[in-house]
Design a binder for these strands. Structure first.
Lengths: 213, 213
DNA sequence: ACGTCGATCTCGAAC
DNA sequence: GTTCGAGGTCGACGT
């Protein structure tokens, strides 16, 4: 790679990004994860080497000149939202059924039906059965199909009316249309609110970050 | 998007990158190009808005707190290669035919033949005619086809042997194979060297950058 | 201008 | 672990 003035970012997970003055994509990079980073000075240059095992490859960055350096530790709320796993969201719905809808009564979770396990299974205010499929993040078509299969299985075992609800922080393209076409419903479910429901600790910490240290 | 400590980069082309402390991908972004950027302060926050027309969308960045700011102008060799337009590269080959090959003698440029205009037209050291197609960046299949058409046209007007040369800084996938299959040749032509040939000014500047100010 | 396709794709989730 | 599908994919190429 030819020399030029660049912005180099080394992240906490070992990711390396080399950016030019234009363009969305980095001109060179190394994804985070199984990376090993080493630094040395050599003939008036600073050399940084980042390598990984699989695939076996390495990126060497050679600094002839350094305009400025900054070292930061970023405290990011996003890392906390990782704490809201699909399991946490399930627990949250069980603890606070109104997150899903008013007067919803959970009956079972991880209930075995033919194709697999239903995330949450319950009863709505009118006594209709409700099958809930929960996704941690944007739900795609496969989530819809999963829900549809479970719904089919449950309907085969009862004469009562059965509703199917897909609960996720968002939906992919066409998912809402597909749901409507199959007579299914969508409910927005925020992973962060779910996390707050099962533990208040992380909220407190988040507030600290916003006020600054 | 939930708040957290981030690294925000606004590039010269209007690209916006918002990075977290981990991962290759930006957590939010706006590609460069048709973007319009505005800044305002509001209720103790700094707000940056970047929007584009097609697709119609915008990204708002709200700073509750700023750890540090840096404004840089990056002088990158890549930008200099922009200064070497296809026309410049053509001039460079005319001024310094050895950029293409030893003892190449240009006869005409932008010469009209049936399908359009041949970039450079000349004669090699053995007296064979040479048709040159120049591309300022990575040449794709369409460049090969263009060259092939011109070559066909020229061959129809002479009994002398005619060579076809594609000159570019690089080639796309399969282009070299296609060239070989059609009996055409490829010559690496560096836009930067072409730019240096037609004017020494930029070279001097680049050298300054590398040595530091 | 709009679709299709490749990428050092990256990034998860399912299996 | 490996494979598979999605992405606001981005960019390049073809029509």
């Amino acid at each position: 790679m030819e020399p030029g003035e660049r912005i180099v970012i080394i992240k906490a997970d070992g990711s390396l990004l080399v950016h030019r003055s234009t363009g969305y994509e980095p001109v060179n990079w190394m994804p985070g994860g199984n990376t090993f980073c080493s630094v040395q000075t050599k003939e008036q240059t600073l050399q940084i080497r980042v390598q990984r095992k699989r695939p076996a490859e390495a990126v060497n960055v050679i600094f002839d000149e350094i305009q400025f350096v900054a070292s930061l530790i970023l405290s990011d709320a996003g890392e906390f939202s990782l704490y809201a796993s699909e399991e946490d969201m399930q627990k949250a719905v069980l603890l606070k059924p109104e997150l899903l809808e008013e007067r919803f009564k959970p009956i079972a979770y991880e209930k075995k039906v033919e194709p697999g396990f239903v995330d949450v299974y319950g009863e709505d205010k009118d006594g209709k059965f409700v099958v809930v499929e929960i996704k941690r993040r944007t739900a795609g078509k496969e989530a819809v199909m999963q829900l549809a299969r479970y719904l089919e299985a449950v309907r085969g075992r009862t004469d009562r009316e059965v509703r199917g609800i897909l609960a996720a922080p968002g939906t992919g393209k066409d998912v809402l249309r597909t749901l409507a076409a199959l007579g299914l419903e969508y409910k927005h479910l925020d992973p962060r609110k779910c996390a707050e429901t099962i533990t208040r600790v992380s909220t407190r910490k988040l507030a600290d970050f916003l006020k600054g240290s």
